[in-house]
Design a protein around this nucleic acid. Sequence first.
DNA 1: AATTACGTGCAACAGTATTGCAAAGTTATC
DNA 2: GATAACTTTGCAATACTGTTGCACGTAATT
Lengths: 119, 119
Amino acid sequence: MRELVYGVLDKNRKALSLYEIEQQFDNVDRSTIFRTLKTFQDNLLIHSVDDGSGAVKYALCDDDCTCSLDDLHYHFLCTKCGQTHCLKNIPIPAVDLPEGFNFENANFVIKGTCPNCQG
Amino acid sequence: MRELVYGVLDKNRKALSLYEIEQQFDNVDRSTIFRTLKTFQDNLLIHSVDDGSGAVKYALCDDDCTCSLDDLHYHFLCTKCGQTHCLKNIPIPAVDLPEGFNFENANFVIKGTCPNCQG
DNA sequence: AATTACGTGCAACAGTATTGCAAAGTTATC
DNA sequence: GATAACTTTGCAATACTGTTGCACGTAATT
């Protein structure tokens, strides 16, 4: 199962929701996939994004990804097709937080239309 | 009711979830507050943030806020106390999107510890 | 007074996430 | 090879947030 789920994420190259992953199988229970994804996350194979679409999405980490530390990148949610892309090539600028605030992690989601949905 | 809900948001000066607002009243229904917040949002009095905590939070807009247009700002979610602060003084840098991607909106949430939770 | 519009509470429902439990499968151990 | 120990899976149930339908009550309007 883990290999199959990994395969789906690898094939799609974008962030998928639990439901979307479930759709790609015929007879696999949500909970199984859910737990598989959780395992992946615990082992830093994938990262999750809450893009505001209502469902958390999951995407593969890069080989050298250390997720919570420095794999920060923008995510792009297309408001037309609903797909979420990882914009790994765009660096996230350092944020100058006010005194007393301590940076741990960040979630930067940009919304708009993706190349497939221009018209 | 609208005055009361507005008062709560004004007093707290941070983003509150529907549930948190509900807690500040004794006998007011979720749906009433929900609809009140929706009304506020339709009239651009408040903006909503999905900080990834599972619940959407709501905060007052500034007087000159035009929300969906240029009131973009960072939000800070404290991983200890769960409070969400608006970091209105920090400008959001322009993001250089790849060809074909069209910017409409953004949601930038930073996680960490807030001044109240340092130790 | 009759009509209309609006606000509220209750209850129900939707969608996603999550967990308990038992069955099925797998691996280790003797 | 049999048994025990552990893992994985499916089903069902539950939690939580958000959302809507409906009925009732109140206030404004004619």
